[in-house]
Simulated scan of single mutants.
Amino acid sequence: MQTPGVTRNRAEFLDYIAKPRPFKDLAVHDVNIRILSDVALIHGRATYTMLADGVDQEALYTDTYQKREGTWVCVSACAIAPGT
């Protein structure tokens, strides 16, 4: 999960996800996929436990994929922790 209110460019995001994750027990729930021709929107809810303090958290997410030359490619991803 990203820090609320932080936007990263591609290089910054790849650096961020390469680091050890600060959480465990990541699970996704309530996933809804809508395919609109060559674009797909994926909405869902993720739950996880923070390693630092053991607190259970959740986030809502929306990922956008586009079909390019027969392959689905993620073109946008957004995760928001409720209440932030």
Rank of each mutant, 00 (worst) to 15 (best):
H43T: 15
H43M: 15
H43W: 14
H43G: 14
H43N: 14
R45I: 13
R45G: 06
R45M: 13
A46T: 09
A46K: 02
A46R: 06
A46F: 01
A46L: 07
A46M: 08
T47E: 06
T47I: 10
T47V: 12
T47M: 07
T47Y: 02
T47K: 10
Y48P: 08
Y48M: 09
Y48G: 09
T49H: 06
T49E: 03
T49G: 03
A52P: 02
A52R: 09
D53I: 02
D53W: 04
V55D: 07
V55E: 11
V55Q: 13
V55S: 12
D56Y: 01
D56V: 10
Q57K: 13
Q57H: 10
Q57N: 10
Q57I: 03
E58K: 03
E58D: 00
E58G: 07
E58H: 06
A59S: 11
A59R: 05
A59V: 11
A59H: 03
L60F: 14
L60A: 14
L60Q: 13
Y61N: 08
Y61P: 03
Y61Q: 04
Y61D: 05
Y61W: 09
T62F: 06
D63P: 00
D63I: 08
T64V: 15
T64Y: 01
T64Q: 02
T64S: 05
T64I: 15
T64C: 07
Y65V: 12
Y65M: 12
Y65R: 11
Y65D: 06
Q66L: 03
Q66W: 03
Q66S: 00
K67P: 06
R68T: 04
R68H: 04
R68C: 05
R68M: 08
E69R: 15
E69L: 15
E69Y: 08
E69A: 15
G70Q: 04
G70M: 08
T71C: 01
T71F: 00
W72T: 03
W72F: 04
V73M: 09
V73R: 12
V73S: 04
V73N: 03
C74Q: 08
C74N: 10
C74H: 02
C74F: 00
V75T: 13
V75M: 03
S76H: 05
S76M: 08
A77Q: 03
A77W: 01
A77D: 05
C78A: 15
C78I: 14
C78H: 11
C78M: 14
C78P: 03
C78W: 04
A79W: 02
A79Q: 02
I80G: 07
I80T: 13
I80D: 00
I80W: 01
I80L: 13
I80M: 10
A81P: 09
A81N: 08
A81C: 13
